[in-house]
Amino acid sequence: MSNLNESGLNPAAQGKAAVMKQIPDDAAVRAESPLHHIDLPSMAGKQKDGGIYLKELAFVGHLSLRCDQKNAEQLSTVKEILGLELPLQPLTSNTNDQVQIRWMSPDEWLITVPGDRTFEIEGLFREKMTGHYSLVNGSGGQTILEVRGPSVVDLLKKCVPVDLHSSEFPGGKVVSTTFAKAGAVIRRLDEQSFELVIRRSFADYIWLWIQDASQEFGLVIEQ
């Protein structure tokens, strides 16, 4: 026990969590999104017009950050790493062209980053973040669906128990709620488009549900 410090580990790495590169550089290693089995790309473009347009944003990096919103040092470190401040107002989000941060609870945020930058950003957190915090890479367990179109609000009314009127649910607002009894984190992008962060284990069910619910409006798959 006494010679733990002599175990040959890099001192800088001691006390830091091991970070795994979940998306390998080798293109020959196949990665499968949660909706791999339905082969959305083959459906893209087959139908041109409809009330609902759906696409999957696959292989995005999902990082769950938990820290103290009263800790100014942590807040500034996050801003330094992501170039974006944590949204402290409940049910809001901060985004730029690469990073989206969603408020999940008073001490939890869901950060999405481009898949190929996940490893680098997770490493930066491990290196720079101070104090009591937790960062979990849940990229493999979740996926993002983007739904838009003139009938998108009518579709979501069948799926979620939240008020979707733009006065109550403006662009940028984030709500985690039940989607057809499964869980989803819903963010409004603009008047006619929403983004759903869904669990891998519910992805197939939600896909079947959306297909059924959007039958009356016409479903167009986008790539």
């Binding site: 409940p90 049910l91 609870s105 008073p106 128990p161 939240v162 709620t177 039940t178």
Partner: peptide, 11 residues
């Protein structure tokens, strides 16, 4: 009180 709004009992 954490989200600051009313939601359905289902949640």
């Amino acid at each position: 009180p954490h989200c600051g709004e009313h939601r359905e009992e289902e949640e």
